[in-house]
Nucleic acid binder design. Structure first.
Lengths: 148, 148
DNA sequence: TGCTTCATGTCAGTAGTCTGACATAGTGTT
DNA sequence: AACACTATGTCAGACTACTGACATGAAGCA
């Protein structure tokens, strides 16, 4: 309704724009994953396991930016659906290394293709060079210090 | 534990790095806002109202990237704590324009200072020029088309 | 005027995530 | 060997956010 408002300070904030892009990406991912019967968290779990087989619950949680308890539920749901397997006995400590089943790999492939397309479309306003620069700038903010 | 793994594909994804930075920012904001008795969503609501007084519930929800229902609860909590006021009768349609109270403005000021410091610290690895470039690149992905 | 369409505010139910807590296994220190 | 410390998996409860639905007010059109 009020389009005549001048651009406020939040729009100048990098944090706000990051949240904006992240929200758009999340909504778009949800749109393509829902028909596949997957939530964004479940997809993240499958993608991580596809690239790093044998990750434990805690490690998956860290890399998906959720708590162990949340990831535990995600794993349980996916295991019930036969998309992954966990050993009954811990191999090393208390860790239960998780592996994808063939069914999980199939679902992951479909989801991965769809998500990749969504991401590509979202960042299409940027050139390949700009996208790489964007990636590196963001990565520099989360890597502690390039002291080595 | 497994540090010898080569960097996987998700780390090359722009979407993943965005999620990573957003998670770090959210955690850091939560850390400084919790002592003030505010959630991130409540802070976002106050900040939006501080910069755009009189926004309606729906408009606040859109700008904070949550649903109307969620923002409705946020407003109710903040109103109970005397930080904002809503008219009993809608002025125009069904919109109830919200305004900050002096108490709300005071709390907002403290929170705003803290959040600004957090953000500044998170993006400190980047120069001012790089931060502006980062902002513009991200903004280009959410603005439909610069055809005009 | 009457009808359609859309947006807003709100209620109820559901699902997902978080916090707090506990037992267990490995590591390091004395 | 004994202890403290850390990390993992898991259970229970509370909280937050979302989906679905409804009534109301405004705007557009026949």
């Amino acid at each position: 309704m009020k389009q005549h408002e001048t651009v406020g300070a939040v729009d100048k904030s990098v944090g706000y724009v990051i949240k904006q892009v992240q929200a758009a990406l999340n909504a778009a991912m949800d749109g393509v994953l829902r028909p596949l019967g997957l939530t964004v968290a479940q997809y993240a779990c499958l993608e991580l396991l596809g690239q790093h087989p044998g990750l434990s619950n805690s490690e998956l949680a860290r890399r998906a930016f959720v708590t162990r308890q949340s990831m535990n539920l995600v794993l349980r749901r996916l295991q019930e659906r036969g998309m992954l397997t966990r050993p009954d006995q811990p191999a090393h400590g208390r860790e239960l290394p998780t592996e994808l089943t063939p069914a999980g790999r199939t679902t992951l492939h479909q989801a991965s293709v769809a998500v990749r397309a969504v991401e590509q479309q979202l960042f299409s306003p940027l050139s390949q060079t700009q996208q790489r620069r964007l990636h590196d700038d963001l990565a520099a903010c989360v890597t502690p210090a390039p002291t080595d």
